[in-house]
Computed example of a mutant assay.
Amino acid sequence: MGGVTSAASSPVPASAEPSVLGLAPVIPVVVLDDAADAVPLARALVAGGLPAIEVTLRTPAAPAAIRAIAEEVPEAVVGAGTVLTPEHVDAAGAAGARFLVSPGWSPRLLRAMRVCGLPFLPGVSTASEVVTLLDEGVTELKFFPAEAAGGTAYLKSLAAPLPQARFCPTGGIGLASAPAYLALPNVACVGGTWMLPADALAAKDWDRVRRLAEEAAALGS
């Protein structure tokens, strides 16, 4: 990938880290209110075949949750989601995140993600955004909110004119709809929460989470 250039900046080299898109067909999108749940939840997801785990920065517990997973579940590849600012980038990196995901992007945020050196998925929902990021050398993108922004039909329409773009669609996707996304040539994986039902998390039913993760991981076979 190329660098981000502006009148006030010089190009920034791309991350040398490997892509996160090929780790599993599904990336669980995790929102945690209690960091104490992070390790057993991550172990359940990994045991079910979903090693890439996105912990969203939507709660105060998120940095501690990322740190706990990074330190205690080495077989997991933990990332930070809902990255909105350069400060979020710094906090995620300090906590041990191994990749970054944002629902959208700005030049300032994009530059911070490039500088940090971690793999990242900036969010897009229009063809113009995709073209702009491709022009910056960014080819791996989050398509969000997937269902609301046009779903599989929209992504299919982007495949021919923009074949170099690869997507992780997230937003409104469930077990029933995920296969249609994964069948598209420009979709590498999907993000979702269906393997993390609220009642299972509240009950700390990690065995149920593992079984649902196994079901999601099987989508890639």
Rank of each mutant, 00 (worst) to 15 (best):
A146D: 12
V55H: 02
G220L: 10
K204E: 15
T139C: 10
D205H: 10
R43D: 13
V29F: 03
A62P: 13
A68K: 00
F167C: 09
A97G: 13
C189A: 15
Q164K: 07
F143M: 03
A176H: 13
R208E: 15
L45N: 05
P11G: 07
A183F: 11
Y181P: 08
A127M: 06
D205G: 10
E136T: 01
A176M: 06
L50C: 07
V138L: 03
T82C: 09
P161F: 02
A14D: 12
V26Q: 05
S128W: 00
R210T: 14
V124Q: 02
A36I: 05
L41W: 09
P11F: 08
S106N: 04
T170V: 15
A65F: 12
E140V: 00
F99N: 01
A61V: 14
A36P: 05
L212I: 14
W105Q: 00
A35T: 10
V31N: 10
D34F: 04
C116P: 00
V101R: 08
E54V: 04
A91K: 06
T56I: 07
I53M: 09
C189P: 07
L57F: 15
R111Q: 10
A47H: 01
L184D: 10
S221E: 14
G96E: 03
A36S: 14
E75V: 02
R43V: 08
R67W: 00
V209P: 11
A95I: 07
W206Q: 07
S102W: 07
L184F: 13
M1Y: 03
G220A: 07
G192V: 14
L23P: 02
T59P: 06
R114D: 06
A178Y: 13
H88T: 02
D135S: 14
D90K: 12
T5W: 10
V31A: 13
L100F: 04
P28Q: 07
A176K: 12
V124L: 04
R58Y: 04
V124S: 09
P103R: 12
E87G: 12
T82L: 08
C168R: 00
K204M: 12
A14C: 06
T85R: 00
L196S: 11
M113D: 07
Y181S: 13
P179L: 11
V101L: 14
G22L: 01
S9T: 14
P103F: 13
W206L: 11
P107A: 06
T193A: 15
